[in-house]
Design a protein around this nucleic acid. Structure first.
Lengths: 136, 136
DNA sequence: AAATTAACTTGCAATATGCAAGTGATTATT
DNA sequence: AATAATCACTTGCATATTGCAAGTTAATTT
């Protein structure tokens, strides 16, 4: 339902219409960087998303084809969420957000280590990370 | 007040805590690309932000030092809003959002023209655009 | 067979958003 | 000099969204 509204044809506005809230990009982050891929995984993240908000965001992300739902290989009770190409293409945005945050916040060591690699050769990092994301 | 809350120390989360809503980046966009710099300018934008929301967002952006309020040279009745360095540093994020949107939406011609320049040499574009932003 | 896990849904209170109208300080017009 | 218009907000209120706790249903483990 959320997917129909469009406030203008500005690229920033169109993008925010889909994932411009406090939670959507955290789900994307979990899928992209944390190898999380189930509803339960997302619930466990540090920011403590509410169950109904998570369900609603997953639905919007799916409706907008940033993620897709698949059968989980381990169990019929589980659902496996996966980034689509459109979702994977958010990687450069996520990286730039990380780099901005690195400049203005004090970040955890593991993330700082990753950003060190990014700063060495951004294009290379993105390319190889995309490759990884497409594997799984 | 919004500026104190921090859901976690993740860079994406910290960033969204500040500007992760449907409106903040549209104000940044207006300052960054549209040469808009007054309350009235922002109100005129296509997305039609409500006056109270605009006031509240401007306050949060100012509290978080992404923008600053200055005396308008033309009139005491006006306020001139300006991006700080921290705000200017959002440019790479904005560009990547534009590029993502360019891939998945049909954008206005003037923006497509700008993105053509971006695609030729991204680093060069960003550098020269930052230079422009610092002038004014 | 009973308990646990997984992925949600529901109800409701608290918060945020959106709209229309109003305010007070300049500034422009008559 | 008085009046009208502009500018940057604020206020009140209806509606929508969020957050919390508890409940549901199907699948899996014990």
């Amino acid at each position: 339902m959320d997917s129909i509204k469009k406030r203008s044809d500005c690229p920033i506005s169109c993008s925010l219409d889909i994932w411009g809230d406090k939670w959507s990009l955290l789900i994307i982050r979990d899928l992209m960087f944390k190898k999380k891929c189930t509803y339960g995984d997302f619930l466990k993240s540090a920011e403590k998303i509410a169950t109904n908000i998570l369900a609603s965001r997953l639905q919007t992300l799916e409706e907008n084809k940033l993620i897709e739902k698949l059968d989980h290989p381990d169990s019929k009770a589980k659902v496996l969420y996966k980034l689509t190409q459109k979702g994977i293409d958010l990687l450069p945005i996520m990286i730039e957000i990380d780099l901005w945050a690195d400049k203005y916040f004090s970040l955890p060591e593991d993330i700082k280590a990753m950003l060190k690699e990014v700063k060495k050769d951004k294009a290379k990092f993105i390319k190889s990370w995309i490759k990884e994301l497409k594997k799984a």
